[in-house]
């Protein structure tokens, strides 16, 4: 590393966030590739904490800026590298053009270690049998895999890249206990995704569903059949948000232990394509 290259430094700042931004510095043209060796991840962590943490949180779970957990998996190295070094015009995300391609790859490599429970645990079931269990249990009515299925619950195309067998097993037995917290559709902060909401209108009618979006005046939920319901908060009797509850049924009593193992193995095998 050249001693005279400006150090791209951190962002723990006054008002909001934003790190050391040394704009308009010619960017290293080398393509950005994730660096995932333990040494690279350790360096990436330091660079992340110095440069990105003020807006995105020390654990990249989001603060004033969105959560970055899972972002490299969703966007890929090239797009992540472009955003990190080029910024997003019209937003608070400035470009960090002074980061080299290698350093950017180290930051992305570090981010790839976050937000996963897809650890070293090996699923013990049979993937092929698990696919049959998935199809026979009606899962596709609510979940999408590779473009097929319903959109009530989270898409599962890449769930095995993000979630390990123990997380998946818990989700099948007690849905709602480990809901993901991501910026997601919400612009900032770590909001609970698929939060169960019970709305009672002024005429006593009630609707259950998962939160799709919310602001200070409105809330929109999706019911178990996939229908959307929008409410003006001032016009309803009450809104109850119930963390831990889910519109998804538990499969504790409907699947045998081997079926459960197979289904977990199948889900854990879903790594998807970027």
């Amino acid at each position: 590393m050249s001693a005279i290259r400006p150090l791209c430094v951190a962002a723990l700042g006054l008002f909001v966030c934003v790190p050391a931004v040394l704009s308009q510095i010619p960017r290293d043209p080398t393509p950005v590739v994730s660096k995932t060796s333990p040494e690279d991840v350790a360096t990436g962590k330091k660079l992340y904490e110095a440069t990105c943490s003020r807006c995105h949180g020390l654990d990249a779970g989001g603060s004033d800026g969105p959560s970055l957990q899972g972002a490299p998996e969703r966007l890929g190295d090239e797009a992540m590298g472009g955003i990190i070094r080029g910024g997003i015009p019209g937003t608070g995300m400035n470009g960090f053009g002074s980061l080299s391609a290698e350093e950017t790859g180290q930051v992305i490599g570090y981010l790839r270690t976050l937000g996963h429970t897809a650890d070293t645990e090996i699923a013990k079931g049979d993937v092929t049998k698990g696919k049959s269990v998935y199809e026979a249990s009606g899962c596709a009515g609510c979940h999408i895999i590779s473009g097929e299925g319903g959109g009530v619950g989270p898409e599962l195309t890449r769930v095995g890249a993000m979630r390990g067998p123990s997380y998946l097993r818990t989700a099948l037995l007690t849905p709602g206990t480990n809901l993901p917290q991501e910026a997601g559709a919400m612009e900032r902060g770590r909001f609970t995704q698929f939060l169960f909401v019970h709305v009672v209108t002024k005429d006593g009618h009630s609707v259950d569903g998962t939160r799709v979006s919310e602001d200070s005046f409105t809330i929109e939920i999706k019911d178990a059949t996939g229908h959307f319901h929008a409410f003006n908060k001032l016009d309803v009797q009450r809104i109850e948000k119930i963390p831990g509850k889910s519109v998804m049924p538990s499969f504790k009593d409907t699947l045998s232990a081997p079926q459960l193992d197979d289904l977990v193995a199948y889900l854990a095998s879903l790594k998807g394509a970027q």
Binding site: A10, L12, T192
Partner: peptide
């Protein structure tokens, strides 16, 4: 969660590694 920095001296014009920061209770916690 306020995380203490590991440095007590900052260099003018630069931002030191290990400055500390926060893990914010954002989203539905705020």
């Amino acid at each position: 969660y306020f995380v203490k920095g590991t440095t007590t001296k900052w260099e003018m014009g630069k931002f030191p590694m290990g400055a500390g920061g926060e893990r914010a209770l954002s989203g539905d916690d705020a």
